[in-house]
Amino acid sequence: MTTRLILDEHYSAAIALALHGLGHDVVAAVASDELRGASDPELYRHATQTGRRIVTENIKDFRPLLLTATAADTPAAPLLLVPPRRFPRGHGDRNAIIVAAIDAWLRRPDADPRPIEDWLI
């Protein structure tokens, strides 16, 4: 089984392309006509329906969506939460740093069964 990811809108399509080049199934919301500008609930629904884990630093909006779905015992999209302090915007080559971190996370032997709410470190 391969973990499939969708990058929240604050991540560039270049990150998804770089990860795809490393053999990962990653799409960027900003590169999709359907998802560009979508609300957080819409992106969450799409990720749930397509079996993708959302990569986001928008913890305050996506975490409640996850908690609501799990509390209702309905299908839920897992999250890969990115701490903004660890990966600050405007810091050098942020894209390369995030690509390396996500690639390392995806290459972990336990990436698929990771918790429904996991953190990129």
Rank of each mutant, 00 (worst) to 15 (best):
A29N: 02
V82D: 01
T3V: 13
I102T: 00
G21P: 12
R85Y: 11
A104I: 02
D8K: 11
R108M: 13
D110F: 02
I98L: 15
R52I: 07
N58Q: 06
R108K: 09
A14F: 10
A71N: 14
P115K: 01
A111F: 02
R114E: 12
Y44D: 04
T3M: 15
A16Q: 08
A13D: 14
L22W: 10
L19C: 04
D40V: 02
H46S: 07
P78F: 09
P64I: 05
E57P: 02
A29F: 06
E57H: 14
G21S: 12
A29R: 04
W105S: 01
A18Y: 13
L66G: 00
V30T: 15
V99W: 03
A29Y: 04
D25W: 00
G37T: 04
E34T: 14
D103H: 05
I54S: 07
G92E: 14
N95I: 07
E42K: 15
A101S: 05
D40W: 10
I54C: 08
T74R: 10
A29V: 09
L17K: 11
L80R: 02
L7A: 08
P115G: 00
R108L: 13
D110Q: 05
H91K: 13
I121P: 14
H91F: 14
R4Q: 08
D25S: 11
R107E: 12
D61Q: 12
R94D: 10
A104V: 03
D103R: 00
L17G: 12
S39A: 12
A69Y: 08
F87I: 07
L81Q: 07
I116L: 14
V26H: 01
Y44M: 03
V55Q: 01
N58G: 06
N58R: 00
P88W: 10
P75I: 12
F87V: 03
T68V: 11
A14I: 12
K60E: 10
L106M: 14
A76M: 05
D73I: 09
P109N: 04
T50G: 05
D25T: 04
D40C: 06
I121Y: 15
R36D: 11
G90A: 04
L35N: 01
P115R: 01
T48C: 13
D40N: 15
L7Q: 11
L79K: 04
Y11I: 00
W119H: 14
I54H: 09
A18G: 03
T56A: 04
R85M: 13
A101P: 08
D8S: 00
W119G: 04
A72D: 09
G21Q: 15
S39C: 09
E9I: 06
H20R: 15
R53D: 02
R4V: 03
I6T: 03
R89E: 07
A76F: 10
I98S: 02
